[in-house]
């Protein structure tokens, strides 16, 4: 491969790592901190992606649109709409136990995928939406950068922003309540915390982050179809990333995104190079088996992940504690 080919591949690689990193941070807010079992990530991902695509594309006879709004408006719309969907779902499922929440979320994700595939007036159905512009491509062109490189910079900036916010949230009293709910719900309630409200807030924030990831994906990839939001890509990989990296640990979520995306996309190279002629169709299922087995090994051998969760440093209240911390 030529040098420019390698560079282009690395740009694409890190853009996907960034998008998956954002999804993993969103899931960490729900599962890692609060213990909410969302396996409908693909649904929020899709809502964000389609919202931003519809808001920003020029008029087309094939789907709803023609608003022609700038990239940032699309992203903002994606965050707001996915937060609203999260609010509605969180409100409906507020009283449900973990297993029921899991079934409800995957049901919503699959229903959203059915709507995207069937309501072609809205999304052009299975034929998909194209012509979604990359962010600020004129600006980056003026700087002499490709639009792909520009996407990577934008994704990295958003990732940094989200990381900063969720890390602040984790150390804040608000994040402490979420972890308390995860560890011991009755005790937290006895301490006077409004459990339903905190859970709903965490669910909505996590959903909004996932919607942001969806919008960034739409603008990087430029084409959307229901295929991209199958549970395998949209949900399962994100879960494996968070568990491998260490749920409850934001840095772990990012490490997981890098490691699992390296294995997932690297296995494509290895398989296409090593499978004999005519067996190329086996590559896809073999890669899924590889990731699936990896998940089982992690769950059995190292359930806390590569970077286990660590409690944030306690606020020193007495003189002796302060002295010990120094």
């Amino acid at each position: 491969m030529e040098l420019s080919g390698i560079a282009a591949y690395l740009v694409s690689f890190f853009t996907f790592v960034g998008i998956y990193g954002i999804l993993a941070l969103g899931l960490n807010m729900q599962w890692g901190f609060t213990g909410q079992f969302n396996i409908g990530i693909a649904g929020f991902f899709a809502v964000g992606a389609y919202t931003s695509a519809i808001l920003t594309t020029p008029e087309s006879p094939w789907h709803l649109g023609g608003f022609g709004q700038p990239f940032l408006v699309g992203v903002l719309g994606a965050v707001i709409v996915s937060a609203l969907v999260g609010l509605l779902i969180g409100w409906i499922t507020a009283r449900l136990r973990t297993d029921y929440l899991a079934i409800a979320t995957i049901g919503i994700a699959e229903t959203l995928r059915l709507i995207i595939a069937n309501e072609s007036w809205l999304t052009n159905g299975v034929r998909g939406m194209s012509g979604i512009d990359r962010p600020f491509s004129d600006f980056f062109q003026a700087l002499g950068l490709s639009s792909a490189m520009g996407s990577l910079i934008v994704v990295a900036a958003f990732l940094a922003g989200v990381y900063f916010l969720v890390e602040r949230a984790r150390q804040s009293p608000w994040g402490r309540v979420l972890r308390a709910i995860r560890e011991n719900e009755p005790a937290t309630e006895a301490a006077g915390k409004n459990i339903g409200r905190f859970r709903l807030e965490a669910f909505v924030v996590g959903s909004a982050i996932m919607g942001l990831g969806g919008a960034l994906y739409a603008h990087y990839f430029g084409f959307l179809s229901p295929e991209a939001f199958l549970p395998l890509y949209g949900t399962f990989l994100v879960w494996v990333m968070l568990i491998a990296g260490g749920s409850g640990n934001n840095l772990g979520a990012l490490v997981g995104a890098v490691v699992i995306w390296t294995i997932w996309s690297g296995s494509e190279f290895v398989m296409s190079a090593s499978l004999p002629e005519g067996y190329g169709g086996y590559a896809g299922p073999l890669r899924v088996i590889l990731i699936g087995v990896l998940l089982q090994v992690i769950l059995i051998a190292r359930p806390e992940g590569l970077l286990p969760e660590r409690a944030p440093q306690a606020i020193a209240t007495t003189r002796r504690e302060r002295a010990r911390q120094q």
């Binding site: 079992f37 973990t98 899924v288 998940l295």
Partner: peptide, 15 residues
């Protein structure tokens, strides 16, 4: 944890 494990097992079986 069994639930997420079974999600993965399902994908393995399908593959």
């Amino acid at each position: 944890i069994l639930l997420i494990s079974s999600f993965g097992i399902g994908l393995i079986l399908r593959s």
